[in-house]
Design a protein around this nucleic acid. Structure first.
Lengths: 340, 340
DNA sequence: CAGCATCGTCGATACGCATCGACGAACCGA
DNA sequence: TCGGTTCGTCGATGCGTATCGACGATGCTG
């Protein structure tokens, strides 16, 4: 492996000059720059990351803490991961995987050993045990998800409250007067991820202001539990029933439960779920969806942390960003108020 | 951040002694070791990764090249990723994400800059364009998947041929005389991932040796295409029909197609799919599966590369490992030959 | 008790780059 | 023509660790 010294020698300049050509931190004459760049080409020189990190105190690596995954969520997590990795490259950074299995000590490890310059935490819980550690780390950290106490933290997430509002508002506009909201699957609810509450609060506010009844029922992937919820919803509904199933994993079970009862989405019942456009179109009856914008959230998270790194932020910062959600009508919801 | 020098000072020894305590590469008296370890504790010292990499020429980081993902596969990819990350930690290594978007130059980048000591490539295609580059890199690389020409490469994958054999053998034993194999979804087939061929070859060999007819039909997630395949299979089948759907994403569509035709898996038809045990049990009719052992493949891949790193392998190595697959009966296949 | 290997520790050096101060050259206006 | 800039380059140093050679201390053999 050639070093910058080799390049310097080949170009007939000092090693420091090579460094300045690369960093642009001092003016370099066109002539010298050309010589150096040619030498770099010829030797296929690439700067050594370790040495660079040692000298500059910057690794250009961001640690990404991925959650331990209740099986069924993996797909959506992967969406975050890949967008985050690709976006990081745009800022000339790399992503180091940190699994949640390592817990809080894992964070201290990667930061303490200076393997990375900052962290992105996914799937932050309302009362996340890692928060005290996060606050004590002297590096920028961006949380995806909003804990109960976000003071001193940089957080970003989809605007779940807006999402809840949008769903109820749209169903109400379609003429539904009773709307049933199915909970996330148990694994999520048990984690006290606070987007569940935010979503629910959004539905309730909208329901109240529009004068429609909003029911909250247990969701999850257990067929019997969901069957019970559906029956209860149907019993309490006057007019055409409407369901909101913000958890992608619940949708499959819901679809089956409705079909068992002879109900066809878009005709006898309205259903709004959460899925990517591609997946939504793939359904037998294209699913009306509330898009929680995972890609946009990911991109902004990376942007945020890179800006913090750029600004060389040391002390605690505080900020909170909510990404607007998007509701899309497909065939699983009624278009017009029935009887109009 | 304290350095090893600080530790040395606190312990009243030389910096090199601290280093030897940590690495164990020279004998240290119990007394000195104690002093040093206490100092490390008190200062909460953690070695600087950059400096360590610079001096030792080892980053203890493995690059993981994850594929660009046709949406529906993400879940299974995540399974690999998380097991790989966790296993790497057992060997005291970390995982750097490299997305396929960077292509072959990305490999040269992370290796050239010495950000990582070796690579794991997922989802290797039969005639992968990155192979020439891989062969030219002077670091250990482990491929998950088996290219057409594996010479000079270290490869590991599930034994898809065995998987195909197992499926056909079991269905034949249950009395089926005609067995229909549905292809992977188009996105996978188009990539020429060669496990498709290996699986098919396994089914054919078993079919031939057992005297049962094996049909190959287009799979994929397109409902119409799959409907056509199912109809064709039913038309050509004498006795109880049997389907093998090795692609997890095809299964959903197949299930619906069969249900539309009034066929109940385990009763009027046998179905073998591919899914993790949890997911298989979650189906309305628990799915008989062929387990392609993603976790085991991941673990072995990490083990392989860590051993290569340990052994300080420079030149090209060659090896090929196939992980045995496991077939599990649940309720979607007939238990006994019909009419017996 | 001399002679010698072994053990435990130290000091010095190298790893490859970024960065700082210094310095010569070219250029400006007076 | 001279003092003062600005521009472009160089040499030296530091970043924190691993590792090599050296060396005193200790234990053993004859």
């Amino acid at each position: 492996m050639p070093t910058s010294k080799d390049v310097a020698q080949a170009a007939g300049v000092a090693q420091s000059t090579v460094s300045y050509v690369l960093s642009g931190k001092r003016p370099i004459s066109e002539k010298t720059r050309k010589k150096v760049e040619d030498a770099i080409q010829q030797l296929t020189y690439q700067p050594n990351a370790g040495a660079r990190a040692l000298a500059s105190r910057r690794t250009r690596v961001i640690g990404l803490v991925i959650p331990f995954i209740p099986e069924l969520h993996m797909a959506s997590i992967m969406e975050f991961v890949s967008v985050i990795a690709n976006t990081a490259r745009l800022y000339d950074h790399d992503i180091l995987l940190v699994t949640e299995d390592e817990g809080a000590p894992g964070l201290q490890r990667v930061v303490g050993q200076q393997i990375c310059d900052g962290l992105i935490l996914m799937q932050v819980e309302g009362d996340d045990e890692r928060l005290p550690v996060v606050r004590s780390l002297h590096v920028p950290v961006v949380l995806i998800g909003i804990p109960h106490d976000p003071s001193g933290l940089v957080c970003i997430d989809a605007d779940f409250e807006m999402a809840g509002e949008q769903c109820v508002r749209d169903l109400a506009a379609a003429g539904h007067t009773v709307i049933s909201v199915l909970d996330w699957q148990r694994e999520v609810v048990d984690r006290h991820v606070n987007y569940v509450e935010r979503f629910m609060s959004g539905t309730d506010k909208a329901g109240e202001s529009l004068g429609v009844k909003v029911l909250h029922l247990p969701g999850g992937t257990d067929r019997d539990v969901l069957a019970e919820s559906v029956d209860k919803a149907l019993a309490e509904t006057t007019g055409v029933p409407a369901f909101i199933a913000p958890d992608g994993t619940v949708q499959d079970v819901l679809r089956r439960a409705l079909s068992n009862r002879g109900l066809t989405p878009g005709k006898d019942v309205s259903v709004i779920g959460s899925a990517t456009p591609t997946l939504a179109e793939l359904q037998p009856i294209p699913l009306s969806t509330i898009d929680l914008r995972p890609a946009e959230v990911s991109r902004r998270a990376v942007k945020l942390i890179c800006e913090l790194l750029e600004a060389n932020v040391q002390g605690p910062t505080e900020s909170l960003q909510l990404v607007p959600t998007v509701i899309t009508h497909r065939s699983s919801t009624l278009r017009t108020p029935p009887g109009s």
